[in-house]
Design a binder for these strands. Structure first.
Length: 210
DNA sequence: AGCCAGGCTACCG
DNA sequence: CGGTAGCATGGC
């Protein structure tokens, strides 16, 4: 696929669905989207919530991850220190709706220990990838949506979209697909934010035909 | 009643 | 390296 074609796909999705307002943050009992506003996160609390959400939504519908976040907020546990202070069973119970609760409870605590040690510093991609439970998509989601870094996020929907567009790239490695998007788009976190969110919206509306 | 959802690790050849 | 079983709940 060529550069101009890729940009066409972006414009087409944006025209079809409009700005998506990612990353949704929990507010007054529900997830709030902010279409066209790329200023989030505006504080550490929101930043951490995005990181936790990125882990909780791994191979799970956002609905389940959102419920898990709501449970954590109800426990006043949506911070690294509070999550670390929860017993394993209490944490697992809270995040149960997100599935894989044994693994995700462990992943969250590993990430919380790391996050606390950052003390506000922006993590390197390689550091995130070295953590147990953080793979390439989660690392890029955290950097893009929590830190506004121009790292393109590749997921199963991205591969499906490439396939639907007739691109042979869909079988390639994560890094190769990521590189293709990053080399053919302006390196702007707002564009990467919107494009990935639009791809997910497209994926949700388009049944897999593999 | 299966199949799928905004993946990752462990382990295999 | 690439390929795949296991992880788990909830919605349709």
């Amino acid at each position: 696929m060529k550069k101009e074609r890729l940009r066409q796909v972006y414009r087409r999705l944006l025209a079809a669905y409009g700005p998506q307002g990612w990353w949704p943050l929990y507010e007054r009992g529900k997830m709030r989207y902010r279409p066209g506003n790329y200023s989030m996160p505006e504080n550490e609390s929101q930043r951490f919530e995005i990181c936790a959400g990125a882990i909780l939504t791994q191979n799970t519908s956002w609905k389940g991850a959102a419920r898990a976040i709501a449970n954590l907020r109800r426990l006043r546990a949506l911070s690294p220190q509070k999550i670390l202070s929860l017993s394993p069973s209490a944490l697992k119970a809270a995040i149960k709706p997100a599935g894989y609760f044994n693994q995700k409870a462990r992943k969250l605590k590993v990430f919380c220990r790391f996050y606390a040690k950052l003390k506000g510093r922006v993590p390197e991609r390689a550091e995130l990838l070295s953590l147990w439970g953080i793979g390439p998509e989660t690392a890029d989601s955290i950097l893009l949506y929590a830190y506004k870094k121009p790292e393109f996020v590749v997921d199963a929907y991205t591969r499906r979209l490439l396939k639907a567009e007739g691109s042979r790239l869909h079988n390639e490695s994560y890094e190769k697909i990521k590189g293709f998007f990053e080399e053919n788009l302006p390196r702007d976190f707002r564009l990467f934010n919107e494009f990935h969110a639009l791809i997910v919206e497209w994926g949700k509306r388009t049944k897999a035909t593999d």
